[in-house]
Structures are given as structure tokens and as C-alpha cells.
Design a protein around this nucleic acid. Structure first.
Lengths: 217, 217, 217, 217
DNA sequence: TATGAATGAGCCTTCATTCAT
DNA sequence: TATGAATGAAGGCTCATTCAT
């Protein structure tokens, strides 16, 4: 109910809700890790940017590593929900390929933090990801991609040698991920602003064309 | 036996040679930074793995950042020499494209350290690369790629809309870089060993096919 | 005997009391700075002489400089309370001058640490003192001195040209400060023990006589 | 001989003269020690500001302490020559007292570096001065002062109880030294510019008057 | 005499983590 | 749940000093 008895003392602190506290920490930690990497982010700073204190991080996550593992897991989940949720069945195979490519590219552009966290994880040799169960996401991706490609092959519009879902996904991931993750080095090397909307749009079209060219029978 | 004739008593290699010392530090630092990133690598560790002591790092590079800048610069140079040095003029345009793609892919596979250092630099927002003059490398890459594509268009074997050297280079870079740099996350996600020679060879062929498909008229 | 009844087992004093810890650090730091100056004192040493560890210095004072600033501020405060707290109104003007001179001299002799800290601060070009608000102490000194001198002039016992409170205070400060601060150089130069009670007493009388001579109408 | 055969190569470095090198080092070291104290000055910096290299300091002075000892000794010598060199015999006793006071005050104002070095030495508990033979300077000071005061007493213009040369010298030293050495703390405390020529002149007159008042019969 | 290279000890500072309440 | 105080181990950096030439 919405009303509160007058005698009830106003809640002194902002967060008396365990989940809310946990989430707040996780959100801030994600930003910090994305911005500075695992080794560059500081427990102190994460705590300072939260309404709670440093000890809560240990209370909820056990250690800095534990917090990072949670950050990583959420990053994967974010990606999953950004990439998933589309129904490609109503589309013609080649239209579906174009849509899938565009959506994947967009998911990366819209989640640079996730890209950065995955880079951090790679620099750390994937030490933390092995605790995560990837089977669901793996199946989702391969199923979605596989169905489209199979339909295309069956319809004679997709080359049979392009129908490997893993290679397909690896290609579109590479094209999307690199564009976001290597902004600074590649952009500077070629004096090319990879955050400019016009350049993003142009690259998006090119990525779609690359995928179509590879697949088209 | 206790004594050893003529065997030098582990002279702890007093270098007394500026260039040798500097190079030794730089080499070890490159490995450390590649393995652990800028923030993860320790000056102490780098010194310990060198014949010299911690101070020499400051003597020659001024600071940890200065050392990192030197590491980064050398990484760029390494890449340049790995990618350059090929003459594509004798080849037919499409053959040249295939060769260029294969060589670029190989350069990445053979230099995972450089890939990792560039990832570190990206995580650091490219803060150090701005001191480096990239104009020579930029021209080299765009000239090489541009000449091949122009010849292809002129010969009618390359699509005019695929002849942008920057997009072309961005594509082949993405495909090569991601394959090496995201080994751990992507590989684990799909239970796919991206360091296995067979998988590397297969992917190499696929990358070449992607580039050809996109360009072929 | 080996055991001692009821004697606490050297509990290494876990303070858990912010003010007590802060004060303990400040007290030790004052001694160290007085003994060795800002640059000569070591954070390590200060920590070692405290029940706490090095970090607490940074926890409470932020930096070595911050600690020094606190030491300096307390030194000024110590001086203020040592010099203040006297009521000269009941005394005849010349008696008041003698009392003021004697008290100021005594304040210096009793607080050689403060003298040394002020010397350190002067060697550092007064870099830290500018953050301190001196207005209260300034007014206190000038008011106290001014009132005495004015009464003396009004009573015809003090020369009008000696009634400048700033000059008066500068004179008595010089005479007192130098006697404590330059013990080692002046004392050695003239083989004169400036810490010997008899010499202190003699000099005290001389200082009073100097002030009276200058002021007497 | 003055001429040099044409075949003789021009001297490559600036200083091939031992004494010149030694003096150059000593001069720079004096400035550094005066500016930053013994602990604050750096061997590296002193060397950098000299035409020679760091090793020369050790070649000529053995250690940083040895260099400091030389600096201190030269500081004493500078003071001696600044204070000495006057002949007070031609003057009336009270005129001589005024002249002596003024000269001493001027010597301090003109040699703030020496003042600072003596402060450093005091902060170091006079650890280095004990190697210096002060007897000559001691005699000079006491003789000069003593003769003036004796003449004054004999002439009936100086009070007998003011005729102690040590006390006299201590007084004028205090007044002069403090004015230069405590510029920063005293000046800031009272918002009083102790480097301003007008204030210096006024204080000089006051110091003379103080000495005269004390002595005058 | 003179120099660039090298050293070892130590300095200020920071960090992840835990304790006591 | 929550917090301020405390810790121990390092981490980056500097300094006086010496070696080899």
C-alpha cells in the first residue's frame, strides 16, 4: 500500500534493500571496469560512487574478483538480450541475413561498455569466463543463425559453403566488435572518427553488404 | 664435484651497454604488457626478469608510462614490418587481394603480443598513441591496398563500390584482429579452439573468401 | 619471575578511536619534524613510532605534506596558547612590558620544537602557512602589546617613538627566537651553552632590560 | 707561454681547471642548500646545474655531506668578511655602536643565503660545524665589540652593565638574523613585507636605536 | 680528470581486504 | 545490514653512491 503511518521514522539511508544495493554496486562496477579495466578500477572508487560503503562490496561479492565475475556475467547477459529478441522467420533469407547483421552491429555500437569488458576479459586470458555456463547463449546464437542459413540454402539463395553458422557468427562478430573496440587505435591511425554517426551508418551498410556478398548464391 | 674449471662464476651479466640494456628492458616489458596489460604489469617484475635493476627502467624510460609508450611504439613498428614487405604488383588483382588478406591474417596470428598491446591501448582510450606519428604507416597501408583495388576496378574484376581502401583495410583488420584478440571469450563461448592450427587454417581460407566475395565484380 | 599478575599482555594498543589515533600520529610527527625537518623526517619512522601503521597517516592526513600542514598549524596554536593567557592590565606599564618580555622569552625556551618547526617552515619559504588563517593571532598580539604601550605613553613612562606594537613584537620575538633556534651555531661559535639554566636566566634578564631600555621615556 | 701551436686541438670541455670546477660546484651547491636545505637538495640537480657531471662532486668532495660541510664553511667565511673589514676606532663610541649595528644588520640582509644555511645547520643540530675552527672569528667579533664598549664605558657614555661583548653581539645578531630568516612566517603572520626596502630601512633604524638605548649611559 | 651506466636501499603512496561495532 | 577504522603487502619512483672506461 502506498501510505505510511506518520509515526514511522523516515528511512535514514537511501538503500535498505539488499537487491537494490547489490544492483547499484554492480552498475557502478560495470562502468568502472569498462572504463579502466579490472586492474585499473579501484574498489574504493566503486564504493565512493555508490550510496553504500566499501564493505558492502565484500559482503555481497566476496572479493574484487567476485565483483568482476558478476560484472562479466551481466555483460554477457546484456549482449544476449541485445542480440536476441528478434524473429527472423517472417523474413526472406537474404533479408534475414541483412537484418541479423545490422542488429548485431547495432548491439555492439549501443553497448561499448560490454565490448570493453570483453576485451578486459580477453586480456585476462578468459580466466573468469570459465565459471559461466554459456550453453544457452551458444545454442541461441547457432540456432538463430543456422535456421536462416539453412532456409537460404534450401531456397537456393545462399551458397552452401557459406552456411556454417559458427563462421558466419564469427565474421559478423569480428566486424562489429572491432569497429567499437578498436576505435582509438584504428581511428587514430587513419584519422577516422569511428564514433561519428555518419561513419557508423556507412560502416553498418558496408558490414551488411559484406555478409550478403559472402552468402549470396 | 664442487669446483668447475674455467666455468665463469655466473657473472650476472653486467651489461655496460646502453642499447643492449634498453632493448632488454623493452623486450621484457613487451611480454609483460602483452600478458597483463599496462595496469597489470609490474615494474618490479619487469626489472626482475631483466639482467638489470628497477632503476634502469627509470633511467632509460623515465616512468612506467614512458616505458609503455616505447612498448606501444615498437608494437606498431612490428606490425608495420610484418604487414609490409610484400610486392603485390606482379599478381592479378584478385590474386593480390587474396594474398593481401592472407598475409594480414598471418601477421596477426604470428604476433598475438602486438594484438594484445593494441587492446590494452584501446582500453586506455588510446591515450599514448597520440604521440606517435602514424602518417607513414597510414600512407603505406592505403597506397598498397588502393593500388590493388584500382587495378581490379580498371580490369573489370573488382566492384567499384568495394574499392574504398579504408573500408577494405578495416574489414580485413577486423577479421584478423578479432580472431586473435578474442580467442578466450569467443572460443570459450562456442567451445572452439582458436589456437588450433586446423581451425586457424580453415578460418584463414574463410577470411580470404570473405574478402574476395565482397570485391569480385 | 616470569609471569606478572594482572599486567596486560602488551596489547599493541588497537586504538579503534579516530581522534586518539590522529592525535598520536600528530604528536609523533611533530617530534620528528622538529627533529629533522620536513624533508628529513620519514613517514616510515613516524608510523613506526606510533601504535598504528603507515597507512593511517594517509587515511587521516592524505599525504606527508598534509601531515606537515597539520603539524605546522598545531605549532602555531601551541605558541598562541603559550604566549596568550596573561592579563597585563593590572600591572604598571613598565612592569607589564617586563612581564610580557619575560613571558615571551619563556614561551620560546619552553617550546623549542615549535621554534624548530617554524624554522623548517621558513626554509620552505612559508609554503604551507598561507593556508592558515592568522588573523586571530595577529589581532591578539597587536592588541595586547598595543594596549600596554599606549598606557605607557599616556602615563608618560614610555617614549612615543617606541610605541609601535609591530616593531616591539618583532624585537622581542627576534631576541627570544634566535636564542632558542640558533643554539647550535651561535653557541658553538662562542663556546657558549645556550641550554644551561644559568645562561638562560641571565639572557632572560638581559632581554627584559633591552625592552625596557628601548621603551623607557 | 701564451701562444699555442695550431695543431693543438681546442679544449673540448669548458672546465679543465680543477679549482674552477670545484668552485663552480660549491657555488651551485650553496644556492641549492640555501634554497632547499641539506635534505631537500639533490646531488643530481647540483651536478646538472654545473658544467660537469655528478661524479665530480664525489671526486672533489667525497660525499654529499662533504659538499655540505664545504658549503657551510664558506658560508661562515662569507659572513666573516661581510661583518669584518670595518675600522671603528676613528668613531666616537656611540657612533661606533650605531655603525656596528647597522653594518651587522646590512650583512644579514645582503646575505640571506648564509642565513638560510645557518638555519639548516641549526636544524641539523650543528652536526657539521664542530669540524670548523671558529676561534679566529670568535676573537675578531669579541675584540671588535669589546673595544668599542670599553671605550664607551671609559668615556662615560656607555652603561657598565651593557658592556658584555657576548650579550651585545647576541642581541644584534638576533635582531638581524631573525629579520632575514623569519621573513616568511613572521611576515605572513602580520601581513608585513620584510623584503620591502622601506620596511628594511625602517627596521634598520629601529635596530640601531635598540642597541643605543640599551648601551647609552 | 671526466663520463655514461649501473646499483641497492629506501621513500611516499596505494590497494584489496578485514575488524569491531 | 551497515560503517569507520585498521592492516599488510606491494607499487611506482628517487636518491646517494660507485663502476668501468
Amino acid at each position: 500500500m502506498e501510505h505510511r503511518l506518520k509515526s514511522a521514522p523516515a528511512p535514514r539511508r537511501k538503500l535498505r534493500d539488499a537487491d537494490a544495493t547489490r544492483d547499484a554496486i554492480l552498475r557502478v562496477a560495470t562502468e568502472e571496469v569498462a572504463a579502466k579495466g579490472l586492474h585499473g578500477s579501484r574498489v574504493e572508487e566503486i564504493a565512493a560512487r555508490t550510496a553504500t560503503s566499501k564493505n558492502m562490496i565484500y559482503y555481497y561479492f566476496g572479493s574484487k574478483e567476485g565483483l568482476y565475475a558478476a560484472v562479466l556475467e551481466r555483460a554477457y547477459a546484456d549482449f544476449r538480450s541485445a542480440e536476441g529478441g528478434f524473429d527472423y522467420d517472417p523474413l526472406e533469407p537474404l533479408e534475414a541475413i541483412a537484418a541479423l547483421a545490422g542488429n548485431t552491429f547495432d548491439a555492439h555500437v549501443r553497448n561499448p561498455q560490454v565490448v570493453r569488458i570483453l576485451m578486459t576479459e580477453n586480456l585476462d586470458l578468459g580466466r573468469h569466463g570459465d565459471r559461466i555456463d554459456h550453453s544457452a547463449q551458444r545454442r541461441l546464437v547457432l540456432d538463430t543463425t543456422g535456421r536462416i542459413l539453412e532456409r537460404g540454402v534450401a531456397a537456393g539463395v545462399v551458397r552452401a559453403d557459406a552456411a556454417d553458422p559458427l563462421q558466419f557468427h564469427l565474421t559478423i562478430s569480428s566486424l562489429s566488435f572491432f569497429f567499437v573496440g578498436n576505435r582509438h587505435t584504428f581511428g587514430r591511425l587513419f584519422d577516422y572518427d569511428m564514433a561519428a554517426p555518419a561513419n557508423i551508418a556507412a560502416r553498418r551498410a558496408e558490414v551488411i553488404e559484406i555478409m550478403l556478398s559472402r552468402c549470396r548464391a
